[in-house]
Write a protein that binds this DNA or RNA. Sequence first.
DNA 1: ACTATAATTTGGTATTTAGCAAAATAACAA
DNA 2: TTGTTATTTTGCTAAATACCAAATTATAGT
Lengths: 90, 90
Amino acid sequence: MSDIFTTLASSVRRDILSMLKERDMTAGEISDKLTVTKPTLSGHLNILKSADLVVTERQGTTITYSLNTTVVDELLANLVGLLSSKDEKE
Amino acid sequence: MSDIFTTLASSVRRDILSMLKERDMTAGEISDKLTVTKPTLSGHLNILKSADLVVTERQGTTITYSLNTTVVDELLANLVGLLSSKDEKE
DNA sequence: ACTATAATTTGGTATTTAGCAAAATAACAA
DNA sequence: TTGTTATTTTGCTAAATACCAAATTATAGT
């Protein structure tokens, strides 16, 4: 729960998540859409993977990244728990 | 929208938001509950204020902090927009 | 004006993070 | 095994962030 927020603190990583929300993509395809170099992108992908927000599957020389929808849904539930409510007194 | 995530990246700031979710508190009261020094806390409160997540009201020498519930609700809506859905094809 | 209390600002150091180029690894084909 | 493509790891520098102590501001009481 804790490091998910630091994971989301980067706009590059948020952009990646938005793209993967639409469709699965290889690292190269993601790289084509962003301005950072491939090594930099690879670092971001690693962070997303460590946070369990994405999963990977290798097909030959390419690696396809996809959203881990289960964890993303959990994250949203946690966010709502963190910030909403407060309705106890009114 | 962008810097709200960097604002939430700090556990100290998330703790402050959780506390303010329960009740309004002065800077001193918040400080009593946390391990950081007052100057450090003041910096965090400034960041929360700049992100429009909290509002302040001075009463004499004390300053009371409260959640800006309007903006917090907007934030939650944006988060859901960023991460959920993807249901277009299924 | 003087003192006390609450909170913030200033100035500085240390840790973390993001970024790149160059080198390395993985899978495959010839 | 040599070469090619896709991706990652390594090594490094620059920028951002967090933290604290000391100094400062703001308000109220005497």
